[in-house]
């Protein structure tokens, strides 16, 4: 399968924070959810992919091209939604159309205005008069109206109500339907990713600690809830992390079927991404 995005050994050092050998591979036609707590390195990674930060080591390839050497070609095929970074707020959606048609070769005004109508966005009101949710929808409409092959989205659904979130998720799903397009998105709203992501990549403290398909994570991984006595009988090799709560132990395991065969513990549940995040970050080994 052809890869649309490849990040190899990306390292970037800041005072008090470091991205360490970040590796990401996103195949064509797939959606990758990028998760991690605040300050884990999600936005820094996205900024490096988009060439917003320069002084890093490692290789980043998009559509098989180097992100620094073939910048223009790459940017023509990318749509980006970044947290709070957009057009100056005195401009209107109409102004954005006027500007973008002279920036992108493939800018599709018809499609852009169709999205504005679908999202019930006004054409002539300044961005500053729009609500946070409307503004986000405008950012998304702007990002996809030049028929990009890759969407890079940093928290695209934050600030949206459940109905709007649903609309946006439907839009993302229809975006990848032709199997030529891909989406790389970071989000705190892990339930959204459980619905749409094909791959989940988890970053913690500047390190990628997990990158799997959604099926592997949500079908194979599990959470065992047991007593202290039961926990003490479990071999350390058979779990990833555990968290001790007031009445029970919560244990993250890699394969529910294998675990079930080996141990006589009844409560082995499927895991949600939220539980996975909490156990990976707050858990112990």
């Amino acid at each position: 399968m052809e890869n649309i995005l490849e990040v190899n050994n990306l390292c970037k050092k800041y005072k008090g924070f470091e991205l360490q050998n970040v590796n990401i591979t996103l195949p064509k036609g797939m959606i990758m959810g990028f998760i991690g707590e605040n300050g884990a390195g999600k936005t820094t990674t996205i900024k490096a992919i988009l060439d917003l930060i320069r002084d890093y080591t490692g290789k980043i390839k998009l559509f098989g091209l180097d992100n620094r050497e073939d910048n223009k070609k790459i940017k023509e095929n990318i749509g980006a939604v970044l947290d709070d970074m957009f057009f100056p707020e005195i401009l209107t959606p109409n102004d954005i159309n006027n500007i973008m048609k002279d920036i992108y070769k493939n800018w599709d005004s018809k499609l852009y205005f169709k999205y504005l109508t679908d999202f019930s966005l006004p054409n002539n009101k300044a961005i500053k008069t729009l609500s946070k949710g409307m503004r986000k929808k405008l950012e998304i409409a702007t990002a996809i109206s030049h028929h990009p092959q890759l969407l890079i989205l940093d928290e695209p659904t934050s600030g949206l109500d459940p109905v709007a979130r649903n609309e946006v998720i439907d839009l993302f799903q229809s975006f990848i339907q032709n199997e030529e397009c891909s989406i790389f998105l970071s989000s705190h709203i892990t339930t959204d990713l459980e619905h749409i992501a094909d791959y989940i990549t988890f970053i913690n403290n500047g390190n990628i600690i997990l990158s799997k398909t959604r099926e592997e994570l949500l079908e194979d991984y599990g959470i065992v809830k047991c007593s202290k006595e039961e926990f003490e009988k479990i071999d350390e090799k058979d779990f990833i992390q555990y968290k001790k709560s007031k009445y029970e132990y919560e244990i993250l395991i890699e394969n529910r079927k294998v675990f079930n065969k080996k141990y006589d513990i009844d409560t082995i549940d499927k895991i949600t991404l939220e539980e996975l995040m909490v156990l990976m970050i707050k858990g112990e080994k």
Binding site: D51, L52, N71, I78, A80, M85, I90, I103, I127
Partner: peptide
């Protein structure tokens, strides 16, 4: 005032995500 609006809405960062953004 255009510089102030650009900074307030982080246009400089957004512009870089566009084709030839740094130069243009």
């Amino acid at each position: 005032s255009t510089f102030s609006y650009d900074t307030f809405n982080k246009w400089d960062a957004y512009a870089i995500t566009l084709p030839n953004g740094r130069k243009n």
